[in-house]
Design a protein around this nucleic acid. Structure first.
Lengths: 204, 204, 204, 204
DNA sequence: TATGAATGAGAATTCATTCAT
DNA sequence: AATGAATGAATTCTCATTCAT
């Protein structure tokens, strides 16, 4: 069902994320760097992508999508909301660069860079797959949670999604601060965030 | 106390924000565009800044700082937390590009772009003035709020600051979505956010 | 006597001329375009030609030669010089792209482009067949015409060839001007050219 | 009255013709070669021309125009048609590359190369100056010649212009043939061409 | 024998930065 | 002090040619 990717495409996608994880600036990546890392010729990349922006945008999209799918699958196994959120936060902790990638992806959706514009185009083209974005995962989990409740207004649901998503964002930010490199500070923060999320869900 | 800015510096700062507000991509701004908009010669800019990155980074810093100062002053006049948060959200709505500027600035604090790296350098150099950042405003307001309470743990304070800040961040993102161009949906969301924030503050 | 051409060679020759007739710039033709049009693989073309220039140069040479042969055969059937020239001009009119091709070929013989250089090499290699060039057809027809005259000096013959050839060139140029799309203007020009040629032949 | 050219523009124009005179292929000239020959930086050229094609096209146009102006002025001093044509042919002989430039320019007016297309655009933009083209010089000379005659039909005039022009074109081609490197053969041809032209003018 | 995916050298173009005026 | 013309390093992208299948 899901679209097939050629080995060269995958190589490009991996290369971009590796570079990103190594601290490269996505806005200043060169085609030479990407194809060098991917181990393919420059010309080859242009047989699969129309330009540099497409390479980067699709790479972020692909990686974001697959990390989100993985997250969603993992969460389904957890019994309650508390466990689910805990699962996500721990996963983020263990895969900081991946998590970063998703939030970078989100930030990009709202800035003016050339790559962001391309990402928005891609998302528009692939609406269904895009349902697997970070925001949508939050939405799905909430819908599962509220299935047996009496209906909640749409406005409130949207607020909840935003509120929870913003807390995940918080955690992603915190993960990069030196201060939170100590396990105890980090798990304190994690607990506060989980509590916060559960409290909000109950309140609504 | 606060550093003096020459008229040329101010011209550059204004030019960068104007371009940003016009939708320019900060990562692809050219010196020619900036100095052209600022109405000064290219060579002149280099008498005040060491390179292009410094122009853009300082411009964002300067604008962010001054918008925050303005926000903080305005908030002090409001009587309670509810009114204060309301004031901030309304201000953001009325000055979307300025608000955007702050949050772009925040995003940059955590990405790998060349400009972001420069911004972090600047912030490190100007620690005191940086106290006027968006995150610090939230912190100050909370401190004022908690002044008469028995002491709250540092961890909890940090959580609260981040949680509120990330809600504002999400609001900034929401403001750019077409769906929220209708006043009624927007004010519903605004009300929920204010309630959410007040609830969190009370809960802690 | 005449060299055999393989079907792949012919396919390339036809493809080049078709592209040329469609308005392509011979100096910017790509191997991919040529082999695509010819319906063969890129690698295959390299089994028959040493490089791109050879493909194009030989194609022009081949087409020029065959059109000239056709012209020459047709002319032999006409009874006098007037009828012969008339035949050629009408043929040019009906096959503008082909005629164009020949004159382009002539122009190329005297410019410095890479393809021209190759064409000149080919002509040098295939001297005999080259006798079938546009200039040589003019020469042959003149020789037939003068067969029963007392001998004419070589200088004069060469001048006559040049003069007649230049008039054909004229007509080729005229055929491409919008002004001469109207039949009446065109036939007036044709008559003047035929008269001019006959007058020159008589004068010498 | 006539447009001013900056020193850099002139440098480019001269460089292109020098390269052309050295046997370079106008369709494969690189910007690096041109600016190298012109003694200016690559970037500088782009401050004066929008792209490579414009550099070459304008260079040919400029050189063609100035050679034509020179030719026209020189011819005016000659007493009759015979002397005028003689003057032109001798001038062409002495400045083969310049003459070549004009005729290359003419060829380009009718081929499909990228540069040719640009030249046609330029000619369209600068119609007035273009009056100084090779064809127009022939037309002017003929008009002077026919001033005291009873009117000649437009068709006939057009034929004469083209006929004479194409003879000059052929002469330019002949000049490049090895056979005509000997002065005696060349002057014999020259004489025949002059006679031919005068005869045509009288006949019409 | 035929193919076309893969390659990388090479060309056009841009733009940060310098420096003579 | 202010300027902007000049520069060339760096980057994107193309396409002739090769070679494994």
């Amino acid at each position: 069902m899901s679209k097939e990717y050629s080995s060269k495409e995958i190589a490009i996608y991996k290369a971009v994320v590796e570079l990103f994880e190594e601290g490269a600036d996505l806005n200043n990546l060169t085609v030479a760097e990407i194809t060098g890392k991917a181990g393919i010729g420059k010309g080859t990349a242009y047989a699969y992508f129309s330009d540099k922006e497409e390479m980067i945008a699709k790479a972020l999209f692909y990686n974001s999508k697959s990390f989100c799918e993985q997250l969603y699958k993992g969460m389904l196994k957890e019994k309650d909301l508390y466990a689910k959120v805990n699962y996500v936060l721990l996963k983020m902790e263990r895969q900081i660069p991946k998590a970063d990638c998703i939030f970078r992806f989100t930030n990009m959706m709202s800035d003016n860079s050339t790559i962001s514009k391309r990402i928005r185009d891609i998302v528009r083209e692939e609406v269904l797959s895009a349902k697997m974005s970070a925001v949508n995962i939050v939405k799905k989990v909430l819908e599962d949670e509220f299935m047996d409740r009496e209906t909640t207004s749409e406005d409130k649901m949207e607020y909840l999604v935003l509120s929870i998503y913003s807390k995940l964002l918080c955690y992603a930010m915190v993960l990069k601060e030196d201060k939170y490199k100590q396990e105890e500070k980090l798990s304190a923060m994690r607990a506060l965030i989980i509590d916060g999320i559960c409290r909000e869900v109950r309140a609504i």
